[in-house]
Design a protein around this nucleic acid. Structure first.
Length: 863
RNA sequence: GCCCAGGUGGUGGAAUUGGUAGACGCGCUGGCUUCAGGUGCCAGUGACCGCAAGGUCGUGAAGGUUCGAGUCCUUUCCUGGGCACCA
């Protein structure tokens, strides 16, 4: 039985080393260092006030990288800050009457204290808080610079308006067409909004995805799809009144299939299209139809099930190539935000158009037939069926396009359109400009002033920052800035007449789009960051965070980096993150009582198959992302008090690969805790052995262990480089097992054991830094492990001079043979044939063929 | 519907370029230690047949390529994630 003294005291030990690291300022970057730089960054947290397991995992992953890179001789920047603006603070104000600033600052203080015992190698001297004016004043300046460059502009746009809350809702706050809190139908309203011109960089943002070699493919694909480039043409269709006379205007449509123009049977426009709006002025039925369209709106369920609906405006559009004309309909499936908000319909070669045509009895004309099929028969089949043909083929019934394949036909059609002045080839992006206006209090104020005479006037640089007023009330819905008695009333900077401030604030993605640059010189008062420092540290070498930010945050940051370069803040830097890693979620089993209520894991007792909560049976549900609503959360604070930070860290790193979801289990954390203690005891027992060189003549078992030590140093290093932390843990445990099982009486075993424990300590350091530091001390070292270099290995020691070969007969394993390294094929073959099991299989028959793969396998083929 | 990941023991997961499937854990079984619980230590643990030696089967399913397939190809099923009437 182990006495209490023989048990690792994590509480004292972890605190001791955290203090030592802080006293030695271990995690500050080295000024004027000759070492290569390495910038590790985890996505900065929103200060909700409570640390959760997702945070622990995220920052543990980053910490492993930071500590490993430091040991590898890099000058490491590993900062921390707070993404402190956002809606929850306003909700807290609304629900509990706490001021958002106070609530946020309290949460930050609380979370900082929760982070401390985890022992992360963070440079807290660079801490930043995005809701403080010393941070956001710089982004107000950036915004003004963007305006000057034409990268920020104002336009009318549609927003989700909650009529009860009197606010704009983000798309994710609209659930089934209703406001997430009010529960009432959300309206589409047109408001003047500020936009950032991310589309200016659409092509570059797309092309540069290829340069992001250390990003997950998944994220690159998502960004690629989000930008959504498509090549096509804009085509002008002159409009005719119902009486057949030209109206004098024309309808511009975007298409990716100009080759199918001869199959057009209608044009369709969005319900928000200016033409639809104008025609509705004199058409009550159309007004009703448009109203219906905007009601059906936002919910995915509605969109999914919505039947194609159209309204014939009786206006007709004349074909750009022929004398024919087609009806112009308003249709519920045409998006105003994409292309021109208008399409031409070719039912033969587009499924949606087909559905629409069949419903409204519009003609279906086949203009593309698959190569090698009889065009007449194919056309007959297509035109009488309900299936559109959307694949490649040969143009038919299309005059000058006949006989061309789709790609060539597209080019020919565009050339003709351009020659006739009736259209042109264009590239269309799905990506839209970034709307940054929010009708909120708790965000960075948009630094402009509205003057009746001068229009929109930027706040002069000398008047920055525009700070948020403290005396605001949340007792009524709507934007407190807007109804503040004095804040918005100012003099126009240009003409000094009475004017008003912009009361919108920025989207909170604004703050997170440049914080990585601010960390390079976080205390600079008069600039957002020092250009030289930023150019030295950026791009971030390793960025780590959740996939939920795979598109927006990362794309916005990539955009900002380009925009900041164009505004002179950076010298041509385009990409902020050279390496990106997206971690999986932390999950836990879920439990429900018989009446369906979720219950927390803490109260659940399990005996065999049965689980109970307060004596009542509960059903065990599948493992899901930890969430308050399902009560399947485990509090990191509690875990750290019970097992310490190292055990929690080890558990996070073992088993599950970091990119996959991790299932939290009690037995898992206990296993981590047991291993940690075992390591600590082993190190203590090694400390009795004198440190010194391993003698040259040692017992075979000791020699094998020595080789394994070198191999572990090699593979663990490689595993850490490649984010295979789970297999790094496995390799270290394997080595631990070998060392613990080593016969200490064997010649040289003591020296090998001692060396092995030194190496295990060094390897385990990035994973469990506190116990590693303690082991390092007990092994007699006077320096901090946190400041020690990563161990080397001898490549010569990686290979054994005896190799075990698998021996197969007809591809089935029958035994193994040990041969000297470099043995020739004949020797392997005869050794393999000599195996009794092989002889039994051969049963006297001669082998037909013997395959020998050196150092791998011998396969004997027998008839 | 489209795109992207994944399906390996009771369980989390290992497995360079095709070359000994199940490393390393968790759990479980037996034993030792202990007043006891835990800890610690020893042994075992894919399924099936067998006292054993040994054999048969086995990586979602079905085919194929190969001396040899978890890995490559074709078809198919299931799970998770993203996007969604993008013209």
């Amino acid at each position: 039985m182990a006495s209490p003294e023989e048990r690792y005291n994590f509480r004292e030990t972890e605190a001791k080393w955290q203090k030592a690291w802080a006293d030695h300022a271990c995690f500050r970057v080295e000024a004027n260092s000759k070492k290569p730089k390495y910038y590790v960054l985890e996505m900065f947290p929103y200060p909700s006030g409570r640390l959760h397991m997702g945070h622990v995992r995220n920052y543990t992953l980053g910490d492993v990288v930071a500590r490993y890179k430091k040991a590898k001789g890099f000058n490491v920047l590993h900062p921390m800050g707070w993404d402190a603006f956002g809606l929850p603070a306003e909700n807290a104000a609304l629900e509990r009457g706490v001021h958002p600033a106070k609530w946020t600052r309290q949460n930050i203080a609380q979370m900082r204290e929760q982070f401390r015992p985890l022992g992360f190698s963070l440079d807290w001297s660079r801490e930043l808080t995005s809701c403080e004016p010393d941070y956001y004043k710089h982004e107000q300046k950036m915004f003004l610079d963007f305006m000057r460059k034409g990268l920020a502009y104002r336009k009318e746009s549609w927003v989700n308006w909650d009529p009860v809350e009197n606010t704009v809702l983000a798309n994710e706050q609209v659930i089934d067409g209703k406001g997430w809190r009010s529960g009432v139908d959300v309206e589409q309203r047109k408001l003047n909004q500020w936009f950032l011109k991310i589309t200016h960089y659409a092509d570059d943002l797309l092309k540069a995805i290829e340069t992001l070699g250390r990003w997950p493919d998944k994220v690159r694909v998502m960004q690629h799809n989000w930008i959504g480039r498509s090549e096509g043409a804009r085509v002008h269709w002159p409009l005719l009144n119902p009486d057949g006379n030209a109206r004098g205007d024309s309808l511009e449509v975007f298409t990716t299939r100009p080759d199918t123009l001869f199959g057009a049977s209608f044009c369709a426009i969005s319900a928000q299209h200016p033409l639809a709006v104008k025609l509705a002025e004199s058409d009550a039925a159309l007004r009703d139809f448009i109203a219906d369209c905007s009601k059906a709106g936002t919910s995915t369920a509605a969109i999914e099930t919505a039947e194609k609906q159209g309204y014939d405006t009786k206006v007709r559009a004349r074909h750009p190539f022929t004398a024919n004309s087609v009806p112009v309909c308003v249709a519920n499936f045409v998006l105003m935000e994409y292309g021109t908000g208008a399409i031409f319909g070719c039912p033969g070669h587009d499924e949606r158009d087909m559905e629409f045509a069949r419903k409204y009895n519009l003609p279906v004309r086949c203009v593309v037939a698959p190569e090698g099929e009889d065009p007449i028969a194919f056309a007959r089949k297509l035109e009488s069926g309900n299936e559109a043909y959307v694949d490649d083929g040969i143009a038919i019934a299309s005059e000058f396009l006949d006989g061309l394949k789709v790609d060539a036909a597209k080019r020919a059609a565009i050339a003709k359109l351009e020659a006739l002045g009736r259209g042109k080839g264009t590239v269309q992006y799905r990506l839209r400009d970034w709307g940054v206006s929010r009708q909120r209090y708790w965000g960075c104020p948009v630094p402009v002033i509205h003057c009746a005479k001068c229009g929109v006037v930027p706040v002069p640089d000398k008047d920055l920052p525009v700070t948020l007023p403290d005396d605001v009330t949340f007792d009524r819905p709507g934007n407190p800035l807007d109804r503040h008695p004095t804040w918005k009333h100012v003099k126009c900077p240009t003409c000094a007449a009475a004017a008003t401030r912009e009361t919108d604030t920025f989207d909170t993605f604004f703050e997170s789009s440049w914080y990585f640059a601010r960390f390079c010189s976080p205390h600079l008062a008069d600039q957002a960051f020092d250009k030289a420092e930023a150019m030295k540290w950026l791009p971030v070498d390793q960025y780590i965070g959740g996939v939920e930010h795979a598109v927006l945050h990362l794309l916005y940051s990539r955009f900002f980096t380009r925009a900041l370069s164009d505004c002179g803040y950076l010298d041509g830097l385009k990409e902020p993150f050279a390496g990106m890693f997206t971690q999986g979620m932390v999950c836990h089993e879920t439990y429900r009582t018989q009446d369906g209520a979720w219950v927390e894991p803490g109260g659940v007792r399990k005996e065999g198959e049965k689980a109970t909560y307060n004596g009542a049976p509960v059903t065990v549900g599948r493992s899901e992302k930890m969430s308050k609503s399902k009560k399947n959360t485990v509090d990191p604070e509690h875990i750290i008090l019970t097992y310490g930070a190292d055990a929690a860290r080890l558990f996070m790193l073992s088993d599950s690969p970091p990119e996959r979801d991790l299932e939290w289990t009690d037995s898992g954390i206990e296993g981590a805790w047991r291993y940690l203690n075992r390591l600590w005891r082993l190190a203590a027992s090694a400390s009795a052995n004198p440190a010194g060189a391993v003698p040259s003549a040692i017992a075979p078992a000791a020699a094998a262990a020595l080789r394994q030590i070198h191999r572990a140093v090699a593979t663990v290093g490689e595993d850490l480089e490649k984010f295979r932390f789970n297999s790094a843990v496995a390799r270290i445990r394997e080595l631990t097992n070998t060392l613990a099982d080593l016969d200490r009486g064997a010649v040289g075993a003591d020296a090998v054991f001692r060396l092995g424990m030194e190496r295990v300590t060094q390897l385990v350091n990035p994973l469990m830094p506190h116990v590693a530091e303690e082991m390092w001390l007990s092994l007699g070292h006077k320096t901090l492990l946190a400041q020690s270099p990563w161990p080397d290995f001898d490549p010569v020691m990686l290979e054994d001079d005896i190799v075990t070969l698998a021996v197969q007969v007809n591809g089935k394993l029958r035994g193994t043979i040990d041969v000297a390294k470099g043995s020739d094929k004949a020797a392997c073959e005869s050794a393999a044939l000599a195996l009794p099991a092989v002889q039994r299989q051969l049963d006297g028959k001669p082998p037909r063929k013997v395959i020998v793969v050196p150092e791998k396998i011998v396969n004997i083929v027998v008839a």
